[in-house]
Simulated assay, not measured.
Amino acid sequence: MKNKFAALGAAAGAAGVLALIFSVVHAQAPAGQPTRPAGGPPGAAGGPPAGGPPVTVEVTRIATANLVDDVAAVGSIRANESVMLRPEISGRIVRINFREGQTVRRGTSLVELDASVLDAEIAQTRAELALARSNSQRTDDLHAKNFVSERARDEARSNLQVIEARLALAQARRDRSVIRAPFDGVVGIRQVAVGDYVREGADLVSIEDSRSVKIDFRLPERYLPQVRSGQKLAVTLDALPGKSIDATVDVIDPQVDANGRSFLVRARAGNAEGLLRNGMFARVRLVLDTRNNAILVPEEAIVSAVTPRGNANFVYKVAGDKATRVPVQLGLRRDAKVEVRGALASGDAVVIAGQQKLRGESATVRVLTAEGKPAAPAAGAAPAGGPAAPAPAKS
């Protein structure tokens, strides 16, 4: 019972203290103005009084433009076909059938090795082949008359096939003593001379087909979904200042390099003038997408904020004396302007200065001109925060 009376007394004391605080606050409030808890929004408990002075801002009109989404990279020029000619057998060079820098056709004999030993082997094998054919024919005739066994006939036929194979092998070796052009192209500077003894795999001379060229370059993996075969790109070279070459994406390497997180792209370009050479350094500008009538706003018009859903971007759109917050999504950046996507249209006015003073979804503003003077209100319009201007008296 004693605890119950103590609790009732404490509650009564707390109620008295609250009543005293309320009376003091009510006595300090200005006459005719309702009291509000501090910290609330305008027009509600605690915020600044509704209908406060307008915020001075500067605005600009939204413009549209055609945007090209591109990416720059560096790469290397590769000849359409390029090989170093090497012999498959050892031998001494007896003839060189080209001039350095000469254009040759596919199959042209370029270098000949000494083939006298190979020719002798071919002649010997052909003689053996003639004898083997004669023996095989005679054995077939005797077997038909039952003078020899089937085994003797089969051995004669097998011996004939072995010598035929030996002749084909000797002929193949003889063919390898002549190094021919594998495709139409231009031969380079030779590494050997007549009389040199070369072993198999030794460098003889390079040959390149540069009527068209390849351009190899790498891009970060984030561009992989945007790159596809057939896209156009412009190529410039330090060796040819002021000249731009058109190329087309040909092949995209399906493998991404795990070290650099990049992927290889190969483009092709014509080279009718022969200006592009294998190994040249190239700068590439690849067009990923083109967007017409994209909405651009100055970078200073973008306001970033942290929301419960994450970071968000928006601009303040001005209509009359009201500035309304409009969420936007950012795109490309060009010349201090940003592409935005949102509830905006060409010609809309957006705030570029003073938006840090704006609060909430909408606010009353006073717009300044480019010279820093207040913008003239429309005829008959009421100034922000005041009564309608009186009509001028007629004289």
Rank of each mutant, 00 (worst) to 15 (best):
K4G: 01
A11W: 06
A12V: 14
L18E: 07
A31R: 10
G32F: 06
T35M: 13
G39V: 10
G40C: 11
G52Y: 05
P53S: 14
R61D: 14
A63I: 15
A63F: 08
N66I: 05
L67A: 08
I77N: 05
R78I: 04
E81D: 13
V83H: 01
S90H: 03
V94Q: 03
R99M: 07
R106G: 07
L113I: 04
D114E: 10
A115W: 00
A120V: 06
T139F: 03
D140T: 14
A156K: 02
L160W: 06
V162D: 00
I163Q: 07
A165R: 09
S177P: 01
A181R: 07
F183D: 11
I189V: 15
V192C: 07
G201S: 09
D203H: 09
D209N: 15
R218C: 00
R222M: 08
Y223C: 02
L224T: 02
V227I: 02
R228M: 06
G230L: 03
Q231N: 02
L233S: 01
I245M: 01
V251I: 12
D257I: 02
R268L: 08
A269Y: 05
L275G: 08
L276W: 09
A282N: 09
D289I: 04
T290Y: 00
A301L: 10
A305Q: 14
T307K: 04
A312L: 02
V315E: 06
A323Q: 08
L330V: 06
R341N: 11
S346Q: 15
K357C: 00
A363R: 07
E371G: 10
G372K: 10
P377L: 15
P383T: 06
G385M: 05
A391W: 01
